[in-house]
Design a protein around this nucleic acid. Structure first.
Length: 528
RNA sequence: CGGGGCGUAGCGCAGUCCGGUUAGCGCGCACGGUUCGGGUCCGUGAGGUCCCCGGUUCAAAUCCGGGCGCCCCGACCA
C-alpha cells in the first residue's frame, strides 16, 4: 500500500453519487423490468428492489453498465460514444497510471508529450498502418474558419509523429536506445462503444522506443509485456495469458504483436495490454537512421506498447460480483471505509470519537481511509453503497465495539457474515494492513482459479463449437490453420485467436481444425 | 447504413388509442422530526418550453404532416 497513490476524498452532498441519466437510459432501452410501487408497502423494501443491480448471470452487459455508472466511475457525455471519467473512476485511473509509471521509470523510460494533431500525410506513410487506421480516423479539415491545406488527424496512436521526431533526433548509435513513454488521450472513430472498453476517446500510455538491433527491440517488446503482466498480477489482481498475436490480430504496421489476455467474469477475453515489435517498418517509413560504429547508415528497430483506461473495465469485469464493484486494495481509491453505528443519542459521541481516532491512525499509516459519518443514511444503506463502489474493507464501529475496545472488519471479497471478524482497536492498523494484503491475494487467486476452470481443450471443430456455445471460456488448441481458416472460424463462431501462448512447452499435437501435425498452440475465445 | 424501440420534472414511468378541470405517481432533491449492528419511517416543500416546427379545432401531451435526437441488435476495433 504505497502512500503516493491517489486518495479519493468522498464528499457527501456532492453530486458525485447521484443517479445518472444513463442508468435509466440504459434501463429503458434494455427493457429492464421497472419496479414500480403498485401497493403501499415498506419503502425500504421497495428501495432495495429498485436499487438492486441486474445479476451478472441474467444480463451481463447491463450489469456492467450499471456498475460503472452507479459506482460513479464514469458517465456518458453529450457526444455519442464518449464518456466522462468521474472523480472516483479517475482516482482509480491515477492509481493505475502511477503503478505503471513507476515500472516504466524503473526500466529506464522517460516521459514526454507529443501533439494531438498529426498531418494526414504521416499516417499514409506506412502501408499497413494506414489500412488499419483509416476507417477510424477523426480528421480536422477546418481551422480558424478556413479550410486547411492539409487535413490533420486526431491521433489514433502516435507511431507516425514520434517516428518523424525520432528521425530528427537520432543520428548516431550513441543516441540509442531512445526509451520514451507518453501519457495521452487518443481518438478512434468507433461504431459501437462501451464504457471504458471501447469509447471514441480514451486515455492511455504509449511507449515508443528505438534500438540499434533487432534483438534489442525484441527484448524491449517482451520486457514491457512482462511489465504489464507484473502490473496486472500484483496491482490489479488480474491473471493473464501472455502470448503473441496472430497475423490477423496484430497491430497495423507491426512485425509482431504481443498481448496479455485476461478472462472477464462472463468468460470472454479482453486484451489488457499490448506490446509490439515494429521491426524497421516505421524506421523505413520515416527514415530513422543512425551511423553505427563502422560509420555505416542503419535503420533503427522500434517498439511500441500501450495500456489504456480499458483496464478499468477489466477490473470491473474480472472482480465484480452481483453486489457491484470489487476493487483490488492496491488500486482502490478508498481502501477502507469506516461506518459508525449508534442507536441512541448518548452512543453517538463515543462512537464517532472512536471512529475518528481509528480513521486518523489508519491515515497516518498510509492507508486510504474514509469515514462515512453522514447522518442522513442508516448503516445498512452505507454498507450497500460502499459494496457497490467496491471498497475492499469496511470497518464497523458501534456502541458494543466501543465498550469492548474492538471494531468489526468486513471483507468486500467475502460477502455476509463469513467476511466479518472482530479485531482489537489496539492492533487495528496492523490488522487492516494484513487484511488488505490478504484480500489482494485472495482476489488474484479467485480470478486465477476462474480462468483455469474456464480454459478448455478440444480436439475437433465440432467439439470446439459445442464448448464455445455451452461453456464459453478460453479454448486452448493445437493450431495449424491459415489466415483464411482463422477468419472463417471467426465468422462462424465469433471466436478469435487471442494469442499463441508463451507457456506452451513446444510439444507436438494435432490441429483441431485442419488435422495437421503442429507444435503451435492457440487460445481461442469470444473477446471484447 | 439495415432491423427494432423510445422521446412527459434530475431519473423511471402513467396519461396518448377515444382531444376537454390545476398533467399525475414512484425514486431522487430541500427542510423538520424520527431512526441507525444489512437499503428507517412520518410530515412539509421545490421542481414541467409534455423533443422541435407547422396544421386541424372553441380547445392538442393526446389527432394530422414534417423534422430532430437517443437507445438496442447487426457490419470495424485498444
Amino acid at each position: 500500500m504505497t502512500p503516493d497513490v491517489t486518495h479519493y476524498v468522498f464528499r457527501p452532498g456532492h453530486s458525485d453519487f447521484t443517479q445518472t441519466s444513463e442508468v435509466s437510459r440504459l434501463r429503458k432501452s434494455n427493457k429492464e423490468p421497472v419496479i414500480r410501487q403498485t401497493h403501499p408497502g415498506p419503502r425500504g423494501r421497495m428501495m432495495a428492489e429498485q436499487q438492486k443491480l441486474p445479476s451478472r448471470s441474467e444480463n451481463y452487459p447491463e450489469w456492467y453498465n450499471q456498475v460503472v455508472l452507479r459506482a460513479g466511475l464514469a458517465d456518458y457525455s453529450p457526444v455519442r460514444g464518449c464518456m466522462v471519467i468521474r472523480p472516483y473512476g479517475y482516482a482509480l485511473w491515477e492509481n493505475i497510471r502511477d503503478a505503471l509509471d513507476r515500472r516504466f521509470k524503473a526500466t529506464g523510460h522517460v516521459n514526454a508529450y507529443f501533439p494531438l494533431f498529426i498531418p494526414m500525410s504521416f499516417i499514409e506513410k506506412e502501408k499497413e498502418h494506414v489500412e488499419g487506421f483509416a476507417p477510424e480516423l477523426a480528421v480536422v479539415t477546418h481551422g480558424g474558419g478556413k479550410k486547411l491545406e492539409e487535413p490533420l488527424v486526431v491521433r489514433p496512436t502516435s507511431e507516425t509523429i514520434i517516428g518523424h521526431m525520432y528521425a530528427k533526433w537520432i543520428k548516431s548509435y550513441r543516441d540509442l536506445p531512445v526509451l520514451i513513454n507518453q501519457w495521452a488521450n487518443v481518438v478512434r472513430w468507433e461504431l459501437r462503444t462501451r464504457l471504458f472498453l471501447r469509447t471514441m476517446e480514451f486515455l492511455w500510455q504509449e511507449g515508443h522506443t528505438a534500438h540499434a538491433t533487432a534483438e534489442e527491440a525484441e527484448e524491449e517488446a517482451r520486457r514491457m509485456l512482462d511489465v504489464y503482466e507484473d502490473f496486472l498480477h500484483n496491482e490489479a489482481a488480474i491473471p493473464v495469458v501472455k502470448g503473441q498475436k496472430s497475423e490477423i490480430e496484430k497491430f497495423a504496421g507491426a512485425l509482431r504483436s504481443y498481448t496479455v489476455e485476461a478472462m472477464m467474469g462472463n468468460t470472454w477475453a479482453l486484451q489488457a495490454g499490448t506490446s509490439h515489435n515494429l521491426g524497421q517498418n516505421f524506421a523505413k517509413a520515416f527514415n530513422i537512421r543512425y551511423l553505427d560504429r563502422n560509420n555505416e547508415l542503419q535503420y533503427v528497430w522500434t517498439t511500441s506498447w500501450g495500456m489504456s483506461t480499458r483496464v478499468v473495465g477489466a477490473i470491473v469485469m474480472v472482480h465484480g460480483d452481483d453486489q457491484g464493484l470489487r476493487l483490488p486494495p492496491r488500486l482502490a481509491p478508498i481502501q477502507v471505509v469506516i461506518v459508525p453505528i449508534w442507536r441512541k443519542d448518548v452512543d453517538k459521541t463515543p462512537v464517532l470519537d472512536t471512529a475518528r481516532q481509528v480513521e486518523q491512525r489508519l491515515r497516518e499509516a498510509g492507508i486510504r481511509v474514509h469515514l462515512d459519518d453522514r447522518e442522513e443514511h442508516t448503516p445498512g444503506y452505507k454498507f450497500h453503497e460502499w459494496e457497490l463502489r467496491g471498497v475492499p474493507l469496511r470497518v464497523e464501529i458501534g456502541p458494543r465495539d466501543v465498550e469492548q475496545g474492538q471494531a468489526v472488519l468486513a471483507r468486500r471479497d467475502i460477502p455476509g457474515r463469513e467476511g466479518k471478524t472482530a479485531v482489537s482497536q489496539e492492533s487495528i492498523v496492523q490488522d487492516v494492513r494484513t487484511m488488505l494484503d490478504t484480500i489482494q491475494q485472495a482476489m488474484f487467486d479467485r480470478a486465477k482459479r476462474f480462468m483455469e476452470e474456464n480454459t478448455h481443450t478440444v480436439s475437433s471443430y465440432e467439439e470446439f463449437k459445442d464448448v464455445l456455445s455451452t461453456r464459453g471460456g478460453f479454448i486452448r488448441v493445437f493450431w495449424a490453420g491459415t489466415d483464411e481458416d482463422e477468419i472463417r472460424i471467426k465468422e462462424e463462431t465469433k471466436a478469435t485467436i487471442r494469442c499463441y501462448p508463451f507457456d506452451h512447452d513446444g510439444s507436438e499435437g494435432t490441429c483441431f481444425y485442419t488435422g495437421k501435425k503442429t507444435n503451435r498452440v492457440a487460445i481461442f475465445a469470444r473477446a471484447y
